[in-house]
Design a protein around this nucleic acid. Sequence first.
DNA 1: ACCTTTCGTTGTACGGCGTACAGAGTTTGT
DNA 2: ACAAACTCTGTACGCCGTACAACGAAAGGT
Lengths: 229, 229
Amino acid sequence: MKSVTEQMSTPGKRGPKRTLSEERVTAAALDLVDREGGAALSVRRVAAELGVRPNALYTYVPDRAGLERALVEWAMGQADLGLLDGPARSWRGRIRDYALALRAALLDHPAVAPLMMTAPMDGPAALEAGERLLGAFADGGLTGKAPARACWVLIVYVVGSVALDVAETDGTRPIAAEDDRVATRRARLAQVSAAPWPRTAASVDTMAEWITERQFSWGLDRVLVGLVG
Amino acid sequence: MKSVTEQMSTPGKRGPKRTLSEERVTAAALDLVDREGGAALSVRRVAAELGVRPNALYTYVPDRAGLERALVEWAMGQADLGLLDGPARSWRGRIRDYALALRAALLDHPAVAPLMMTAPMDGPAALEAGERLLGAFADGGLTGKAPARACWVLIVYVVGSVALDVAETDGTRPIAAEDDRVATRRARLAQVSAAPWPRTAASVDTMAEWITERQFSWGLDRVLVGLVG
DNA sequence: ACCTTTCGTTGTACGGCGTACAGAGTTTGT
DNA sequence: ACAAACTCTGTACGCCGTACAACGAAAGGT
């Protein structure tokens, strides 16, 4: 199955053959940020990765922001959309499974998560996810404006959670083990003095766990309960 | 009341008098991003704003990230923490009022919102907000780990919402009127074809309103219901 | 077979960025 | 009066995004 972006799919095109493809550019950008973190993402670095002059990338990507959009779209495509389909499984289970899968996919490429708050999620993968999410909420009994509204609340929760989680890492892959990140947070939180902030000091252990899958899952359940009861 | 960061508060300090202060640097940075958007934030631009060479800023701020942290801390301080205090008013009303106030403060300086997903929220203003939020959830009847967990869900929702809302603006102040932003979104969403995405096409009007205070408020209520029932 | 059009890639260049380093000048404690 | 401490400037380096022109390969028309 040939990609639409390859040259031969639009026959009769003049000019020299392309040495790259949008897929190769995206893959190189992903490799780069996985290895060196999101701050390393630049047109020049990706071009160097591909053994090409920086300007060559402008054939495949309009500008630097295009690189970011491509990474976001790629990441959205990593979570299995089939998880949202039913109705053999409960709507709640479907949404839960997809949310956890999307979170896992983003944590697996931590530099990509912050880009979701910057680059618009309007590619086909995002559209498809939204469509099936609307279906799952409809299966949950929501009607009228409620499914679309619930959809946004869920997106905000999932994307916001991952972005905030990843914000305190260096963005390189693989992300540190959850236990280690919790321990780091606990050590930092242990600094807060109990006198001015007693409740905070008493909650240090739980707050250290804010970045865990357990916290994410707990919150996800609470959000879903709030949304459909 | 003199700030600790001013020179006279630490008497006996040698060297020439400071021409600036951390507050003036933060204010200049805020003015800059309000006028020209978050992409304009740079050490050199802020220095130019203050009529000083770029290096002079390093006396007040460790690096470029320090500028971002200062803006986040300033924004957190803009929402009235008294709104979270009680217990004369219901815990639910207090959290609602504070969440709406924080959202309004961030929307009033749209370039700052994305920084909250990047720069850590660990300044005194953030600590204070967390402390009082824990109290409000405790007043709501939550016990054990629940208040701290609920706290994070709420932070994720509020900060995530604003960041995603602001992501599709240019970051300059003032942000466009809500109606205009909705209209822009509706026009863009009208492009999606009903054939592959029927539910999405049917929900265009509601999805256009994802960035409204009405949607934020609706979701906030659902989240709070999920969190404490 | 030629010639022309088309287009991917390179070479070069500009202005902006963060910030390291050394030095100048001002203020204070001794 | 002197020395120490400190703020700011001058300068420099290596990055960045990307505009522009020129080159060369491939394909179409004749």
